[in-house]
Nucleic acid binder design. Structure first.
Lengths: 216, 216
DNA sequence: CGCGTTCGTTAGAAGTTATAACTGGCAGCT
DNA sequence: AGCTGCCAGTTATAACTTCTAACGAACGCG
């Protein structure tokens, strides 16, 4: 998958085994969730005996953290790829939904229930910032509306540390934040199954939010 | 806490012990999440030995399911109580946020990452319907806007099975759904810590969404 | 070609959930 | 009041889990 460009044969083998471990880990997560991930079961599937995996991951948490990292990277990559292909806000939204529906548990690995004590590693927050930069670009490209600055705009104008040095206007900051929270709201409830049996189509709800975000 | 109105002393004692088990379970969940809940640890805290708890809960899942049930009931109760006190949509929204902030892990027990195979028990969906009914009442009480019917309204007009026999107009159905998804979007990201370090106040974002929902 | 790093093994400790079998005491009925 | 039966809580045990320690073997680098 990723960094197979290693020098020594040992490192190449090592990266290969790590990828195989992660592959089986993803399969387990896909059909039982991250909390049910069992190192022993992975070892059995690969054909090695339990403790062998500890040569590749210090412990279960490190493996899961690595999967979280990959999930973040995957989302950021699809996001950036679409943006570089000239996607507007609506197309980014659809990309997000496709990415989420492709593997719900992967989505939950990024945006799901956190363990109270857990500190996200530095690079995931860095990747999140990259995604936010892409999103801010798309929001800044939207034709500015004539409506007066809302209270949220004013607040964000004074608290824009999260936008780094991005020169987006306050209205774009608001739009980016609302893009994030509203789409996540629909997506996470849909993926968690809270809409099942209600009879309506979540895609319609999602589309409605996209329209609302495009022209506020 | 709840049904202490039992007939026989045995039943009363039994209900009391169940409540004590759940009390310690909530404490564990509050500071380590539901996945870290340990029956053994609870037994140790109470002062009995491991397997004793199986007299009161068939297994770990049944205990967690019971906690989920209680969480649903708690949310529905605060919701209904506020509504009966004459709360409008904005006040219901604030009640939701207070309830969520009071115990984030309780919120995640209801709206967090689901276990793929898990089927929610019948009564939780029934409680969810009750909450939706309260929400629909509040939405129907909002002054109808003059704006033409949006595509979402049209879709929901034909797919309103989830509203049961509630006579709310399509615009109210839309508003209720958006109330749910948008507020959940902000809340769940806030509780999961995705806003920490970004520098803005999540309450401002939440308030902005409430304003947007009040006059669309 | 040797030597050292590293990989995989087995053994085992310390947890977990959950079941089985036993014992003690309380409750309720006569 | 006394007897009886149910039931709570016990220990023992099985089958898991993560993870450490110590050992042997294989691989690759100098």
């Amino acid at each position: 998958m990723a960094e197979s460009d290693a020098k020594t044969p040992r490192e190449r083998y090592r990266a290969q085994v790590r990828e195989e471990i992660k592959k089986h880990a993803w399969e387990q997560i896909a059909d039982a969730g991250a909390s049910a991930l069992s190192l022993n079961a992975i070892a059995k599937q690969i054909g090695v005996s339990g403790p062998a995996l500890y040569r590749y991951f210090a412990n279960r948490d490190e493996l899961i953290t690595e999967l979280v990292r990959d999930a973040y990277r995957s989302l950021a990559d699809t996001f950036r790829a679409r943006a570089e292909a000239g996607a507007d806000l609506a197309e980014l939204a659809h990309a997000l939904r496709e990415w989420a529906l492709a593997d719900p548990q992967r989505y939950f690995l990024v945006y799901g229930t956190p363990v109270p004590g857990y500190r996200a590693p530095e690079d995931t927050t860095r990747i999140a910032s990259e995604m936010m930069a892409v999103l801010l670009d798309a929001c800044a490209a939207v034709a500015p509306d004539a409506s007066p600055a809302a209270p949220l705009d004013d607040h964000l104008a004074e608290h824009r540390a999260w936008a780094r040095d991005h020169q987006a206007p306050p209205s774009a900051l608001s739009r980016a934040l609302l893009f994030w929270t509203r789409l996540h709201g629909v997506l996470s409830l849909e993926l968690a199954g809270h809409f099942t049996g209600m009879g309506f189509d979540p895609a319609e709800l999602y589309a409605a939010e996209i329209r609302a975000l495009a022209n506020p």
